[in-house]
Design a protein around this nucleic acid. Structure first.
Lengths: 223, 223
DNA sequence: CCGAGGAGTTACAACTTCTAACGAACACGA
DNA sequence: TCGTGTTCGTTAGAAGTTGTAACTCCTCGG
């Protein structure tokens, strides 16, 4: 990384630095008021230069946001992969890492899992990062001990022949099912928590998250 | 309703009609391009009048969106309540009604459960509608037969003393826990499905939804 | 019938994204 | 060392947006 940056020409290093600062300001704005309130002009003014100058660095607002979305996916995938590298394929560690990542910057989470724009389709490289994240999750679910009553569900049979997303993974349908359950349940709690739908209800969202995680890892020994 | 509208003055009836048409156009725009792309000018142009005229009917863009959010909450609460009135307190019927409501207009779902604007706090009447929805869900969960291994979880103990949201409901903590699980899991699947995170993965989201619902209603007899 | 108030208009301010054209600074090769 | 050419940042401007102010006109109600 040091070598890669050092070998670039001065212009390229400067350009990379300005791009990085633009993105940093953009993240500040998004954290403060959401992605829809992101203003190129405001960023330019903060950086002491005038509006159109930013178009040297990003094709426009959409391109900047796409870049931030890509970074968000990348950050999530790296965080989970690092967690798996440190704790092994442990679904509990993954869950806590996911929650910490989400709470650290809710708007970054929503950039990945929030309301989509109807027409928008993410570039292929972004969906590739998403697949990488799913692979990490699948590995952890494969390492999960099979529960005592592990009869094949109807959904397992469906997954047996509809597993394009896990084509390169040797996990059986039950593992795929558990991975999907893990993903959707963690997201269900986190999404509602970050959106503030639990505020005023009295309970601690962290306990709900832990309860759902317990139900996932040990459906029988949870009591 | 007929009486209430008929007794109003002509001016008020006209005003209500124009407000309704504005909201109808707004829903079209939101369904087509999302809430962030809603343009008062575009609505005015569609209706054959010029921009500022709309400010007679809505204080501004934010007020119009808040009104649409209110209508979305109201629609969801009414749909679930009507389902409960027809099928009784059946959590399965509620789940299918919720999914149908969500699929009928994804952006309406996201207006309720989508990415929040950091600073925004919903008016009290909207949170009251949300509480109404939770009450309907609680009733259905209370009618659910207790599973065989129904030992109190740690989260149940937490809920026993942190149940402000169910203050007026006699349901025990285990029922509260099941209601929260129902809510978060259904939302987890629906949210990811509507946002398109399952596209290209190969499986049918409806089957996943059904599987999660099965796990919720009968954890033992599901196999 | 006539006045008061509501509806819609245009004009304007202050934003936004984004394009075009220009000048100045800088890195690089001869 | 000295052009030269690329790149950066600028201003100007078009085409949008939300929202306010002032004015006209019509209509409803006493």
């Amino acid at each position: 990384m040091t070598e890669a940056e050092a070998t670039k020409s001065p212009r390229e290093r400067y350009r990379a630095q300005v791009r990085a600062e633009i993105k940093a300001r953009a993240w500040e704005q998004i954290a403060a008021a959401g992605a829809s309130a992101l203003s190129l002009n405001a960023i330019a003014k903060q950086m002491g230069m005038s509006g159109p100058a930013l178009y040297r660095y990003f094709g426009g607002r959409d391109e900047l946001i796409t870049e931030l979305v890509r970074d968000a996916y990348r950050s999530l995938a790296d965080t989970l992969r690092a967690t798996a590298a440190e704790h092994g394929p442990d679904v509990t560690a993954l869950a806590h890492a996911l929650r910490a990542w989400a709470l650290a910057d809710p708007q970054r989470y929503f950039l990945v899992y929030g309301t989509p724009v109807p027409g928008y389709h993410a570039p292929d490289d972004i969906t590739a990062i998403a697949a990488e994240t799913m692979a990490t999750l699948l590995d952890a679910c494969a390492a999960l001990p099979a529960p005592p009553d592990d009869a094949a569900t109807p959904f397992d049979e469906h997954l047996a022949s509809h597993r394009a997303w896990a084509a390169g993974h040797p996990a059986p349908p039950a593992t795929l099912r558990r991975a999907l359950a893990f993903w959707t349940r963690m997201h269900g709690v986190l999404s509602l928590e970050l959106a503030g739908h639990f505020t005023g209800m009295g309970f601690d969202p962290e306990h709900l998250f832990a309860a759902e995680l317990d139900a996932l890892t040990g459906p029988s020994e949870a009591g």
